[in-house]
Write a protein that binds this DNA or RNA. Sequence first.
DNA 1: CCCTACCCTTAAAGTAGATTAAGGGTATTT
DNA 2: AAATACCCTTAATCTACTTTAAGGGTAGGG
Lengths: 204, 204
Amino acid sequence: MEIQKLISHFNSYVALNSEEIDAVTERVTERKVKRRQYILQEGDLCKHYNFIVSGCFKMYSVDYNGKEHNIQFGAENTWLTDLASFHSVKSTSIENFHSGKPSKLYIEAIEPSVVIQIELKDLVFLFEYHPKFNRIFRVIIENNFVELQNRLLQNISNPAEERYLSFLNQYPNLSNRLPNTQIASYLGITPEFLSIVRKSIATK
Amino acid sequence: MEIQKLISHFNSYVALNSEEIDAVTERVTERKVKRRQYILQEGDLCKHYNFIVSGCFKMYSVDYNGKEHNIQFGAENTWLTDLASFHSVKSTSIENFHSGKPSKLYIEAIEPSVVIQIELKDLVFLFEYHPKFNRIFRVIIENNFVELQNRLLQNISNPAEERYLSFLNQYPNLSNRLPNTQIASYLGITPEFLSIVRKSIATK
DNA sequence: CCCTACCCTTAAAGTAGATTAAGGGTATTT
DNA sequence: AAATACCCTTAATCTACTTTAAGGGTAGGG
């Protein structure tokens, strides 16, 4: 049982009491995922918020030429979901929480992984009856937002070499585990050009 | 008094009752802002969540060469803040809600504007005593997140011409109000190249 | 009303990054 | 153990985008 890792994760934000721990434990499910297995595919409704206990995933979209573009990686202790499909839109009825939009993204394991999944209705239950989770998830999504915004800023201001260096700097352990093709797709460049960038860095 | 516009905005998510309306009204302040005036400057702590009632702002960072890079525009009925500086980090004490990080961004009016501002301590009060606001602000930030993620995806997958077209498509009224230099900075290209892109589109 | 600052465009030359093609290396699968 | 799929690099050519420079147009501020 890996649930303890999720509880520790929550505790790192705000300490949970035993009621809250029980409430979470009852409402999540653990799942083993093989390499190259999907936990979300284009066209599906995104039904889960996924906490990655171990392993690593990529979330990406596929363009009209069939090329993949990595939006985000997720390794240990991170959350991964397609909010555009998952999130609760304007609505008051429990039945209609989901955006109802089929996802345009894929979430695929790039290592054998373990995830803990929670459904939207259960998350909403936690928000309503255990308000501490409002705070926790607000901070989680705010941190994600800040990270995403920094990355966008990099993409509109810096050339590939700087973006690559700052990726190495921010995710040193990810960069060891990922093939360069995947990193190139994350940076928005071709693997061939990443190869040139790496060579240019090495000869400095 | 423009507070009614904020209330209508909230009502578009979930209808507020009179208690909730009073609670908000007591805790926000209205402010007129002149063209070229800042409501946030680099180095400041970002103290407010800003609801734009009328006018238009740009949020941008300035790089080591002194160039501005537009992260986001904000016109009527949108929220603008630097979450990296504003947001509530891991902490339980009211006194220590802010991230404490000085902002790296500027928020500047590009038209004469009116904003309604709320401080973090007041927002936290609303979250705690009027839980409906948890829901509302979660949806607001989720919508922002999805928008940001789509934009990042565009930036790593599409050339400037497509990014420009989809900006025009998504923000038709903004594109009329903004000088092309500002749009170029938002797209991550130079004004000169935007000019070429526009010409290429026109001759099709 | 004039002045200044800003704004848009064009063009020439340079650089960043894509594409195509090809070779060799290394895991995974069978 | 062989076959296959994937991965990394190099090089040549091509395209997207930047830089520098310059000219003319327009709006805001004193």
